[in-house]
Design a binder for these strands. Sequence first.
DNA 1: GTATTATTCAACCAAAAGGTTGAATGAATG
DNA 2: CATTCATTCAACCTTTTGGTTGAATAATAC
Lengths: 116, 116
Amino acid sequence: MNDAMSNLDLAFAALADPTRRRIVARLTRGELRVTDLAQPFAMSLNAVSKHVKVLEGAGLVRRRREGREHYLRLRAAPLREVAKWTSQYERFWNQRLDALGRFLDQQQENDDEGSQ
Amino acid sequence: MNDAMSNLDLAFAALADPTRRRIVARLTRGELRVTDLAQPFAMSLNAVSKHVKVLEGAGLVRRRREGREHYLRLRAAPLREVAKWTSQYERFWNQRLDALGRFLDQQQENDDEGSQ
DNA sequence: GTATTATTCAACCAAAAGGTTGAATGAATG
DNA sequence: CATTCATTCAACCTTTTGGTTGAATAATAC
């Protein structure tokens, strides 16, 4: 999935998978070894390991090796970038819900009802 | 891509493609017909049409048909949801960059230098 | 030193993504 | 009505994704 993808591409793609979002959520409580991280997921350890690698590739996770155990830790920077990109559009869900927008939404919703 | 994917899955996946993020950006200036929207992209109209459908599937774009022309308009709601999910982790890039975190980052960066 | 444990690597697979081209549909225009 | 224009549909192709299983590696424990 990597290779010449922008940071933002990688971050969004990484977060598009619900398992990976759960991993991120799980890691907010602190560092976890791969095996412990994988424990609640209904898939093989290998699958989780791959997900972790995707998150690592997007910079969302850091790995600290201690003997045979790998401790995983959340890195927020890419989330911050996602938040930044997204917030460009805040004005859109605030000011830009203007008369025309609402009118068009209303219109559309009426059409949708009609066609069911 | 669709089919039993959560809203958030769909939104993140839709935004993971740079072409689609450009489309979103482009639509902030107002409604556009598919052809006009597609104009600056170095790919077939068909490809853009497909991207639009993905965005539509994620609720990020609404389509208003007027004769043979389809006018596309940005819908911010899913962006809002993305922002909401992401902002759960704000505390992480604020408070949670604590002593331990910084220490581990430092440690890791030193290791990385060493291995190059 | 032999098991056991933690993790990845490698090969494989089915499904999805992102693009292409060519044909179909359906309005507008001459 | 024949043509052109706006758009999608359909088929195809290649690459990526998300999972599997089985083997490799490497550290720990007995």
